[in-house]
């Protein structure tokens, strides 16, 4: 009864689309893979070469000031980072941090303008919303496959997959933040004769700042979680340690690397949340 039609070759289509895309856009993908890959790698190497003590102190000072000159977060940062160093995971930490940093920056650079566009155009909102839903509900692992096709294995496909996974919140929150600006303030702005961009930069974005920052925080956290998954396609770092431990079923090293990720997550989360309060 249900077999009135042979199986629709959707998988086939997607395969073809992906490989066609790769062929057509090789001239873009290849330089990204090569040059950007090198850039990321250099950054990670450079960070790993900074003496850990200096990194720990810098993070502690930042934590101290963003949390309103309180010691809690600073002390946690010092102890946490020292623990990671003590466990011999310092280099992995620097790689993971670099991946998170690039993935977040790219997500934000794409996400905020997209959110602004969405807030300004009903049409854009209608189109972008289902795309965001799709991006967020698709199992994160799936993004790894085209990432490998386009960029091979290593850090770049990891960042690519993380960006796809982590961008939606900052888009949504930017859109929400701007739409939530009260009608009266928008009217006031218009009544004084603002141009579109004056209104955006002098009224809407400052008013939406807290909401947008909440979105940024979400995006950074998602990027971090994805970076761990990205170790499956060869992204180095703490996630890689977890994966190796899983494959060899070594619960000790697995948990230790896991702790490292938790510590990094807490520091990034608290620092970015406190930035929002200021």
């Amino acid at each position: 009864m249900l077999d009135f039609m042979p199986q629709i070759p959707v998988a086939e289509w997607i395969n073809r689309t992906v490989s066609k895309t790769k062929e057509k856009f090789e001239f873009i993908f290849d330089p990204i893979k090569e040059d950007f890959g090198k850039f990321v790698e250099t950054t990670a190497d450079w960070l790993s070469q900074v003496p850990p003590l200096i990194v720990i102190l810098i993070v502690a000072i930042i934590a101290f000031f963003v949390s309103g000159k309180k010691f809690g977060l600073a002390v946690f940062s010092i102890v946490g980072l020292w623990f990671i160093y003590n466990q011999g995971l310092w280099e992995e930490l620097m790689y993971t941090f670099t991946l998170v940093l690039f993935a977040s920056l790219i997500s934000i650079l794409i996400g905020i303008p997209a959110g602004i566009w969405m807030s300004k155009s009903k049409w854009a909102q209608t189109i972008i919303t289902p795309i965001l839903d799709f991006m967020q509900t698709m199992p994160a692992f799936v993004y790894l496959i085209p990432a490998v096709v386009f960029f091979g294995i290593g850090m770049v496909p990891g960042i690519f997959a993380s960006v796809v996974f982590a961008t939606p919140p900052v888009v949504r929150f930017t859109n929400l933040g701007i739409r939530q600006v009260s009608d009266e303030l928008v009217e006031a702005s218009d009544a004084f004769g603002t141009t579109g961009s004056q209104k955006l930069f002098k009224v809407e974005l400052p008013m939406a700042r807290k909401t947008i920052m909440a979105g940024v925080n979400q995006t950074v956290m998602l990027a971090l979680s994805m970076v761990v998954i990205a170790s499956m396609i060869g992204a180095p770092g703490l996630g890689d340690k977890v994966l190796t431990a899983l494959q060899r079923s070594q619960e000790g090293p697995g948990f230790v690397a896991g702790f490292g990720i938790v510590i990094l997550a807490i520091i990034i989360d608290r620092v970015s949340q406190n930035l929002n309060k200021g």
């Binding site: 303030l185 009217e187 004769g193 400052p206 008013m207």
Partner: peptide
């Protein structure tokens, strides 16, 4: 022209003040 008039000739005061909190 509308923008020019709003900037130079007419200003508005709002019921709920509509001040910029930041």
């Amino acid at each position: 022209t509308l923008r020019k008039v709003r900037r130079e000739k007419m200003s508005m005061v709002f019921q709920k003040f509509a001040l910029f909190p930041f």
